[in-house]
Design a protein around this nucleic acid. Structure first.
Ligand SMILES: [Mn+2]
Ligand SMILES: [Mn+2]
Ligand SMILES: [Mn+2]
Ligand SMILES: [Mn+2]
Lengths: 151, 151
DNA sequence: TCCGAAGTTCAGCCTAGGCTAAGTTATGGC
DNA sequence: GCCATAACTTAGCCTAGGCTGAACTTCGGA
């Protein structure tokens, strides 16, 4: 008589479903986060955020930027002054600030864990959208320890 | 001495675009990876992988599973025997194995940096799709060091 | 002043991945 | 062996996020 493998990697079905649902939710907000973060960066470092520059940096067509920015506007994150560039609402600024803090933390964490800076930047762009608050706290603790000369 | 975070200046536009393009690519493969991984788990632990069970565990309707499995079939990852469940092709098995290895590594890594097991499982479900090979190697080194009782 | 180039939008198309509601059909319990 | 039911598919719909190509607007330089 053989016992079933003791390793049970399958959680209860509804717990399992919750994990995937959260992931889908994160995917849905990722584009908005990346756009507002970029817009904030451009406003800060270039003085303006033009749609054409977003298209270049996102690697996407200008038409796609128009459509996406339309959704961000609909969702109260962005305002546009035609031919004068893009601006953030208060909500947009708040999201951008949170996104940037998260992005920078993830980058520092990846570097602390041994990744080169360029790969860290690359990977952070995706990972940042899927780290929970708890994970970010753990990352922050780890980075603090490292940067305090803990090794 | 702790340097204040230098203002991260924007990378060259095309480098920037590459980062986002990679991220979009990862997003596109994430669904396939999760499905084949789940199918492999079900085959191993339950003896069969039924569409209705995938729907339950993915938190999605049966109609959505039918459509998604259709794409996986089109892409040569999955085969179906109607009313007898789902099966993996060689390519599907290979993808599932890689996905599971990655998933488990990310979970162990997250636990090693201080996350509780449940949150680690939750976050791994999303993070696993956005960690580059280099990142996974760094994670593996870190886990090995920890599990060997290193600092 | 005028006009071309750059920036922006519009129209029309596509795929992935969701949904519900309404069929089909195979299997297993009786 | 029947047939209820669970499993599965189909039809029709939707949104996000991509694309191309063709307008349309603004602005700066000649
Ligand atoms: Mn990002
Ligand atoms: Mn980012
Ligand atoms: Mn996953
Ligand atoms: Mn997984």
């Amino acid at each position: 008589m053989k016992r079933s493998p003791a390793v049970r990697s399958l959680p209860p079905a509804d717990d399992h479903a919750v994990r995937f649902a959260r992931q889908r939710e994160a995917d849905r907000t990722a584009t908005a986060e990346d756009y507002v973060e970029l817009i904030a960066d451009l406003l800060r470092e270039e003085g303006e955020a033009r749609a054409v520059e977003l298209a270049r940096r996102m690697g996407v067509s200008q038409a796609t930027v128009t459509a996406t920015v339309g959704r961000l506007q609909r969702d109260g994150l962005v305002e546009t002054k035609p031919y004068r560039g893009l601006f953030l609402t208060d909500a947009g600024r708040a999201m951008a600030q949170a996104a940037k803090a998260r992005h920078d933390l993830v980058v520092r964490f990846l570097i602390a864990v041994g990744l080169d800076a360029e790969t860290a930047e690359q990977d952070a762009e995706g990972l940042e959208h899927h780290a929970s608050e708890k994970a970010l706290e753990a990352f922050a603790r780890f980075v603090a320890k490292r940067e305090a000369g803990g090794a």
